[in-house]
Simulated scan of single mutants.
Amino acid sequence: MVPKTGHSKNLQRWMDYFHGTHTPEELSALLHDDVVFRSPIVHTPQEGKAITMMYLGAAGQTLGSDDFRYTRVFDCGDKAVLEFETRMDGVDVNGIDMIEWDGDGLITDFKVMVRPLKAIQAVHAAMKAMLEKMKGAQV
């Protein structure tokens, strides 16, 4: 597991959230209002804080098992690439989170990439189910 300290201020805030309680309020405080989320599943960029929170919340609930861990971190201050590994329904998932921050330390761009194909299929199925569940709960 990647240690929680020694990162730039921006990345440290993400790691504190990631290793913490994961509340919607904490996530909201990290995101710029005009943040763009780039999913490995959805073709078009998802723009805005509300939709990004929905996708990151769903990802946390589907990918964020005890198996999830960041294995390598490339920290460039206002940009970072975090490689992760997890296991979903017997499928090994390998991917990266690419995060960019503005001058105020708010996330402006969050891209997730996943491999191999079986992993993409597992993530797609789990995310679809979780997003449908979340949308149903909002009604």
Rank of each mutant, 00 (worst) to 15 (best):
M130I: 09
G103S: 10
P3L: 13
I96Y: 04
G90Y: 05
V91Q: 04
W101I: 03
F110P: 06
D102C: 09
T71I: 15
F68I: 02
H22G: 03
T21H: 14
P116F: 11
P45W: 01
N94E: 14
G6K: 13
V93A: 12
V112G: 09
L30Q: 09
N10V: 06
M53P: 03
T86Y: 13
S8I: 05
P3T: 13
D75I: 01
P3A: 14
P45I: 03
M15I: 15
V81F: 08
A137Q: 14
R87V: 15
M127E: 05
T21Q: 14
L56C: 09
K135D: 08
G60S: 09
A80C: 05
T71V: 15
M1F: 08
V114F: 00
R38F: 02
V93I: 11
A80K: 03
V114K: 01
D109M: 12
Q12P: 05
Y70I: 15
L82N: 07
T21I: 08
A122I: 04
D66F: 04
D104H: 10
I51Y: 02
M127W: 04
L11V: 06
L27P: 07
D104F: 09
G20D: 11
G48Q: 03
G6N: 13
K133P: 03
V35D: 01
A122Q: 12
I51Q: 01
P24F: 06
R72I: 15
M127P: 01
K49P: 02
Q12E: 14
M98G: 12
L56P: 01
P3I: 12
H43T: 04
T86D: 07
T86A: 13
T44Q: 00
K4Q: 11
D33M: 06
V91G: 07
V112T: 10
D66E: 14
G60Q: 05
H124Y: 03
L56V: 00
D78A: 13
V123R: 02
F37V: 03
E25Q: 12
H7S: 10
G64Y: 08
